[in-house]
């Protein structure tokens, strides 16, 4: 029994060494705020450790499972910021303000503007775009993370790219 727990802990630590950075940045891009990202990462770790013994699947499914937990925790963190009857989609402007407050001093204008454009997207499109563009997840993996079909994911990505292109055209000087 003790050996099982030790092996589980070692496996979990190894998993987090491999995926930890990617999960942190995934959460950080969604919640923007550093402290909230840290809390959501903490919750993600706890949920992963609780569920790791029951996970059955291959490596591709493992990545999807980890991103699913991290996404859920990030969205939960965003939900805590909303007022009564307010949707997460309405948080775009406050996230952009947060982005400007948290952007590093050496961040170039184009990178900030690009991130700002992403934060204006509806939540589902933002999730799909982030996971595809930054994390190189396949459409199938993203569909697993979000519990949607692959067609919906592809459509969301297409609309996200269109909106980003329009936004950047309008806001580039």
């Amino acid at each position: 029994m003790l050996g099982d727990v030790e092996r589980r802990d070692q496996g979990f630590a190894l998993l987090m060494r491999h995926y930890g950075r990617a999960l942190y940045w995934h959460i950080r891009r969604l919640v923007v705020n550093h402290d909230d990202a840290q809390d959501a990462l903490q919750e993600t770790c706890i949920k992963v450790l609780e569920g790791i013994a029951g996970f059955k699947g291959d490596e591709e499914q493992l990545a999807s499972w980890l991103y699913k937990i991290a996404t859920r925790e990030a969205l939960q963190s965003l939900r805590r910021r909303t007022r009564l009857f307010q949707s997460i989609d309405d948080l775009g402007d406050s996230l952009v303000q947060q982005l400007h407050a948290e952007a590093s001093v050496d961040a170039d204008e184009a990178t900030v503007l690009f991130q700002q454009a992403i934060l204006q997207l509806p939540t589902q499109q933002r999730l799909v775009f982030n996971m595809r563009y930054y994390d190189d997840l396949t459409h199938e993996q993203i569909a697993q993370v979000l519990g949607k079909n692959v067609g919906t994911v592809k459509t969301s990505y297409h609309y996200a790219v269109e909106k980003l292109r329009d936004y950047l055209k309008q806001h580039s000087s």
């Binding site: 802990d9 979990f12 630590a13 987090m16 060494r17 930890g20 950075r21 999960l23 942190y24 940045w25 840290q38 990462l41 903490q42 993600t44 770790c45 706890i46 992963v48 450790l49």
Partner: peptide, 13 residues
């Protein structure tokens, strides 16, 4: 980030 991850990992364990 690595420090954050290892702290979160240790805390979860």
């Amino acid at each position: 980030v690595d420090q954050l991850v290892s702290a979160a990992t240790a805390h979860a364990i």
